[in-house]
């Protein structure tokens, strides 16, 4: 059944007839786009936190205040782990694009493990720092910022496990259909980027 619509001339020129009938592909799946939009918003949450941190930093004479200095070695190792995990997770994504579900699993498992190691390092750092959440404004910022980021890492790890769980079903993910895999990867990169900024703010800027 076809309907011939008479397009009224609306002053914008006649409408071009819609030719790309196959334009919609197999899925009108906008989840990736949705996730990106959401992460944009999410990044502003960190943005607010960073802005507040910089204000406190500017208005305090010695930053960080005495006896709340940060340790650099462990976090640097942690940073290397987290940053490299972004490359690892990308291998997983490339694997599924070639239809290699096993590859996906291996690389994703590796990423999750790296995330867990990172979290472990974080917890270790908390335990050994010698000052707590409430010591002073710097320590407030330090714990809230890293904690909030850590929460995101945790969510990322859970997402990765979710992907691995689903990948057990045959053909749940394949070379064409792998939006979930992609989303976990994008989220992981996001967490990674935030960490890099955080690392600069909390660890690098406090050394000078």
């Amino acid at each position: 059944m076809t309907i011939q619509g008479t397009f009224e001339e609306t002053g914008n020129g006649a409408k071009p007839s819609h030719t790309e009938a196959a334009g919609h592909e197999e899925h009108g799946d906008y989840r990736v786009l949705g996730l990106l939009t959401f992460l944009f918003s999410e990044s502003l949450m960190f943005g607010g936190l960073f802005a507040a941190y910089l204000v406190y930093r500017a208005s305090t004479e010695t930053w960080p205040p005495e006896s709340t200095e940060v340790e650099l070695l462990l976090p640097a190792i942690n940073t290397i782990i987290l940053v490299s995990s972004s490359f690892v997770i990308h291998r997983g994504d490339s694997a599924i694009k070639k239809g290699d579900v096993n590859g996906l699993r291996v690389w994703y498992l590796a990423t999750a493990l790296m995330g867990i190691v990172f979290l472990g390092g974080q917890v270790y750092e908390y335990l050994t720092l010698g000052y707590g959440l409430t010591t002073n404004v710097f320590s407030n910022c330090f714990y809230v910022m890293t904690g909030f980021h850590g929460l995101h890492v945790l969510v990322g790890v859970l997402l990765i496990f979710g992907v691995m769980w689903r990948s057990r079903r045959t053909n749940h993910y394949n070379a064409e259909k792998h939006t979930g895999v992609e989303m976990a990867e994008i989220y992981w990169h996001f967490v990674d980027i935030i960490w890099i900024i955080l690392f600069v703010l909390l660890y690098v800027l406090t050394q000078i």
Binding site: A52, V55, Y56, T60, L133, T134, N136, V137, N140, V144
Partner: peptide, 12 residues
């Protein structure tokens, strides 16, 4: 017990 907005703790 944080002091982000507590002036006496260095907050603003």
């Amino acid at each position: 017990g944080t002091g982000f907005f507590r002036p006496e703790m260095g907050g603003s």
